[in-house]
Amino acid sequence: MEGSDLDWEQINTMVKPSLDPWIPTGSFMMVNTSGQQLGQKAHLLLSKLKENDTHCIDFHYFLSAKDGANSGLLNVYVKVNDGPLGKPIWNVSGMTTRSWNRAELAISTFWPNFYQVIFEAVTSGQSGYIAIDEVKIQGHPCTKSPHFRRLQNVEVNAGQNATFQCMANGQTTFSDKLWLQVKKN
């Protein structure tokens, strides 16, 4: 993918054990940030989905770094209709977990749209590992995470804010009120 400097590696410590105690055990996808310059990226693209529904993306992530270092940043994007990458819908950084953590992301798309989930690891310039495992695309809404609402070209999750720029023409007075209404299709 354009903008990708590194590759995700498929690791299986059951077949090839690692002597590094900072690498998790099992079979998973990983980016080794050790020896990499600050800001290098690795993209892992899931298959494109075209369904008129809400899906739940369920996955586990693992961040590990030696001696309190920052392994980097893990972003998740939803690319709609081969459009621009936009802003991440979820990310985690600076936190060494040293254990597997679970995340659920609710994604909605409506015909004729299709979308693609992209995992991005961004290096911090320090030694560490960023890993994901057990990525599942479920054909139903998430059980714990509220779903996103698409407002114009912005996806907003419950509890998040969206910023829009509006322009009004004409004469107004101090007592005039401007109401913003979302048109539902």
Rank of each mutant, 00 (worst) to 15 (best):
M1D: 07
M1R: 02
G3A: 14
S4F: 02
L6H: 13
L6Y: 15
D7V: 15
E9P: 03
Q10L: 14
I11K: 02
N12T: 10
N12I: 07
T13Q: 09
M14K: 11
M14H: 10
V15F: 05
S18W: 00
P21L: 14
W22V: 03
I23Q: 15
P24K: 01
T33S: 12
Q36A: 06
Q37A: 13
L44K: 15
L44T: 02
K48R: 13
L49M: 15
K50P: 08
N52E: 15
D53I: 04
H55F: 11
H55N: 14
C56T: 15
I57D: 06
D58R: 08
H60W: 13
Y61T: 04
L63T: 05
A65V: 06
D67F: 08
G68W: 07
A69K: 15
A69T: 11
N70M: 09
S71M: 04
G72E: 07
L73K: 10
V76E: 12
V78E: 08
V78S: 05
D82A: 08
P84I: 01
P84E: 11
L85D: 00
L85V: 12
G86H: 00
N91L: 09
V92C: 11
V92K: 07
S93Q: 05
T96P: 03
S99H: 07
E104S: 00
L105G: 12
L105K: 00
T109A: 12
F114I: 00
Q116I: 03
I118F: 07
I118C: 12
F119D: 00
E120L: 05
V122M: 06
Y129H: 04
I132S: 02
K136Q: 09
K136Y: 04
I137C: 01
P141M: 08
C142R: 04
P146D: 06
H147W: 05
F148V: 06
R150L: 13
N153C: 05
N153G: 10
G159P: 08
Q160D: 10
T163N: 04
F164W: 11
C166R: 02
A168P: 04
A168R: 08
F174S: 11
K177H: 03
K177A: 14
L178E: 01
L178Y: 04
W179T: 02
V182Y: 02
K184P: 01
N185F: 01
